[in-house]
Amino acid sequence: MSGAQPAARLIGRLRRWYRRAGDLGASYYNAPYRAAIARARRDEEDLFMLMVFSETLGIPNPATWYTLELQPLLLDRFHDWHKRMGMPHSPLDHFRCC
């Protein structure tokens, strides 16, 4: 029994080391590209928002039937989106976020 404890401690320590090395490795892998990936993700998001809100902006879109129920869920992100798109205030009458 006394021999097992130091072994368990050792394994625990090794596991912590492995996790720490993994974290450092992940930040080494991601650090240089965080900005580029965030930008790419935002572009995707912008396209998605356009898909969801295009009908309300006057652009006919067959997908609206499916995306309509997403609108309330995206209310929080709507404000950021219209600001990014160069509109200081909400372009929609029934969507008054600011």
Binding site: Y28, Y29, P32, Y33, A36, I37, A40
Partner: peptide, 11 residues
């Protein structure tokens, strides 16, 4: 996109 090739290749 950078994550497809450039990032893993850099690594």
């Amino acid at each position: 996109p950078v994550w497809v090739l450039l990032q893993p290749r850099d690594y």
